[in-house]
Amino acid sequence: MAEDRSPTVLRIDGGREAGIRRYFRAISAIVWKDLAAELRSRELMSAMLVFALLVILIFNFALELSVRSVETVTSGVLWVTFVFAGTLGLGRSMAIEKDRGCLDGLLLVPVDRSALYFGKLLGNLIFMLVVEAIVLPLYSLLFSVNLFDPRLLLVILLGSVGYSAVGTLLASMAVQTRTRDMLLPILLFPIVLPVVVAAVKASNAIQQSLEMATIWPWLNLLIAFDVIFVAAAFMLFDFVVEE
């Protein structure tokens, strides 16, 4: 698709390599734009963080988490927290684009639309990872569990990639509907559930320090879903932003 859309642009820039460099520059420009806006306003990140802490707080009362009982539910509580906070971030990050007419501007940029998708995906992923990076140590402090296992961090990274991949696609759809904030979780949760289930199962197995033989199937599943979801969203994104 890239070839038939911007052949002239490629030629002006002197060939294919420049086109590829241009593509990555567009992605990084979008990511940078999101980060810079967030650094100045800090509204998205602070909302996600406060929300995440509130979810953990509610879980604490609902499940009567104590240092002893927390072991078995940690991965579940963490993932529900990430998923809820993630939804908040995704909805907001796309609503900003839509409401201030920024999306129309981005669509006019003469690069492939998928650059826009990957840019937003990376931005959303970074926001989610930052929130997770703050929630994780806080959680281990509050409930005295050790969460610093590189395998667990890998699972969280993979899970977040899959989640943001589907989330970015569906959030760009949801913001263009009448019932946007209500609709996003309803659209997103059932589709992204395979990723979340695999991530929870893998995290749980790691938490309970089971041997790698039980962790691998879930990890493989997680990677497979990541690949499927990124590829599907990459192909479908064009149709979602087209006007």
């Binding site: 696609l169 569906l170 263009q176 009448r178 609709l183 659209l187 059932p190 589709i191 149709f239």
Partner: peptide, 26 residues
């Protein structure tokens, strides 16, 4: 529900198609 939330028929059709394809993985 997604379709109910969209008024423009062309956008409704496009989003429906995208969600129908993405949802088929289930």
């Amino acid at each position: 529900m997604l379709r109910q939330g969209i008024d423009d028929p062309r956008r409704r059709a496009r989003f429906g198609a995208v969600y129908g394809i993405a949802g088929f993985i289930s």
